[in-house]
């Protein structure tokens, strides 16, 4: 799993993003969790991952888009060897095949979690502009349905869209903040839409002011 590379890559990511980590009503714990965050930059999962303490980080696997991270040897090395990412197909437009594909993705994620791994997911599905949070895709709901006992931790990533915005190659070294919020769970009988809205709210609330 390339575990011996972890510390260095973490240091590097923290240096570039100057990240400050805040835990609000939530403690870093070595237990199985699903971290879900807003998505504005390619740096997101690296920074979120490096914001976790080392022993917690070792269990966390980011979920990333296959089409982007499988391109080129460097990206593939980073994704698979350094971050132990779970690469999945991006969901195409709604159709019967898409439904089946989505189910396979969820299967793969549940399998990747196994008995001890945590996941880092970005439920918006695609990078936003850094303004309003987009609506959440239903993947996180299905994950929570399959593993209801796992804690869902909302995370807000601030400023990464300014450090490396969508469409730019070169980063600008501004400072960012990662805020972890109070863990939540899927309530029994909770409808899908209500849960997704509640999860989105949980991330929005971590925004300062």
């Amino acid at each position: 799993m390339g575990a011996e590379i972890h510390p260095l890559a973490g240091v590097l990511a923290r240096l570039v993003s100057g990240v400050q980590v805040r835990w609000q009503e939530c403690q870093p714990e070595k237990r199985q969790r699903i971290y879900f965050a807003n998505h504005t930059s390619h740096l997101d999962f690296v920074v979120l991952w490096s914001s976790l303490p080392r022993e917690v980080r070792a269990l966390a696997r980011p979920v990333a888009a296959k089409d982007y991270w499988e391109k080129g040897a460097v990206r593939r090395f980073l994704a698979l060897r350094v971050f132990c990412a779970v690469l999945v197909e991006r969901a195409p437009a709604a159709s019967r095949e898409a439904m089946a594909a989505a189910r396979t993705v969820i299967d793969r994620l549940v399998e990747a979690m196994g008995a001890e791994n945590s996941l880092i997911v970005f439920p918006e599905g695609t990078r936003g502009s850094g303004g309003e949070l987009g609506s959440f895709k239903s993947g996180i709901y299905h994950l929570a349905e399959r593993r209801p006992e796992v804690e869902l931790v909302p995370v807000y990533l601030e400023n990464l869209n300014r450090i490396l915005p969508k469409g730019e190659v070169l980063p600008v070294p501004l400072l960012s903040t990662t805020t972890f919020g109070p863990p939540m769970q899927l309530l029994p009988e909770e409808p899908k839409r209500a849960f997704l809205e509640r999860a989105r709210e949980a991330v929005c609330r971590l925004r300062r002011q």
């Binding site: 502009s129 915005p165 730019e168 070169l170 600008v172 501004l174 400072l175």
Partner: peptide
Amino acid sequence: LREYLTLVPTRRADHRTLFWTF
């Protein structure tokens, strides 16, 4: 400069200018 520009609200279009600055 990093601390200062983090506080100052710049916009998406300023990215390249900021890169020159740094």
